[in-house]
């Protein structure tokens, strides 16, 4: 009897792992079939207004790129503070708040940026979208930096200080260098996360059918356009949405796997 219960339990557990994998396979296969079916290289050459995706892909990268340019330095600096300078309560409060911020609903962050950036500036803009994404990114970068710096052995820091280096020198030249690979992985994963975000962009950057580099206007976004296209009745719009989803997913998974591969190689 005990052995039977054991067998049933193990079988159920293997079965649930199978379910998890089946969902992943189902989604990926769907994307491949539907996405590749409507995929052609012309998508990269035309803008949405001509039935292509060029402006959207470039726009999404620009939004995520600016968000990274804001979020990575701020997140790293905050992570360095928590791990290297912070003593006592304040640093641990910031660490906890950053964890909470990481799980804050993304649509709420969109609403916040709408109220503090979009309304005062009089309209949706690429800049507002990038700020919303940066807010999503900061806590993830803080978390990685904090974790990776904590893995750097104390002796390295002490050796640096013993050589007469200032604390700032020790951090930038020794500690950061030692934790570089880990932080890079975390940053890549954070980038993969924000490049697929839709909700914070809905009413901050919105999207645009045209190619644009003007950050003060509504800015083309791949994810927001997928949402719009998927809700349109025409079959052709939906096909385009599938092609865009396929490109987005491949992009996100490649960035994600690259991040993991970097860490793997280091070990």
């Amino acid at each position: 009897m005990r052995l039977l219960v054991n067998k049933i339990f193990l079988a159920l557990s293997v079965f649930s792992a199978f379910i998890g994998l089946a969902f992943l396979a189902w989604i990926l296969i769907t994307l491949f079939i539907k996405g590749l079916g409507s995929f052609h290289f012309g998508l990269f050459l035309n803008d949405l207004i001509d039935g292509g995706l060029r402006n959207l892909i470039i726009g999404q990268f620009i939004l995520a790129g600016i968000a990274s340019a804001i979020g990575i330095p701020l997140g790293m600096a905050a992570g360095i503070y928590i791990q290297e300078y912070g003593q006592g309560k304040y640093a641990s409060i910031i660490r906890d708040l950053s964890d909470i911020m990481m799980s804050a609903p993304s649509i709420v962050i969109g609403a916040f940026v709408y109220a503090v950036v979009v309304v005062p500036t009089g309209g949706t803009s690429g800049f507002a979208g990038a700020i919303a994404l940066a807010i999503m990114m900061i806590p993830v970068v803080i978390n990685t930096t904090d974790n990776m710096l904590s893995l750097v052995p104390r002796e390295l820091r002490e050796a640096g200080i013993a050589l007469g280096a200032s604390k700032y020198k020790v951090i930038t030249d020794i500690v950061i260098k030692a934790a570089k690979v880990g932080i890079m992985t975390g940053v890549l994963l954070a980038f993969a996360r924000i490049i697929g975000e839709t909700a914070p962009l809905l009413f901050t950057s919105e999207t645009s059918n045209y190619f644009s580099l003007d950050l003060t206007e509504s800015f083309p976004s791949l994810t927001v356009s997928i949402y719009d296209l998927a809700n349109e009745p025409e079959e052709s719009s939906r096909d385009l949405a599938w092609a865009a989803s396929f490109i987005l997913t491949v992009l996100v998974l490649v960035i994600n796997l690259t991040g993991r591969f970097i860490t793997r190689n280091k070990d």
């Binding site: 189902w26 989604i27 769907t30 994307l31 993969a192 996360r193 697929g196 975000e197 839709t198 909700a199 994810t223 997928i226 949402y227 998927a230 949405a241 599938w242 989803s245 987005l248 997913t249 996100v252 998974l253 994600n256």
Partner: peptide
Amino acid sequence: AIPSIIFGMW
């Protein structure tokens, strides 16, 4: 890691 909008469409 799959973006949530993909889950929605699928």
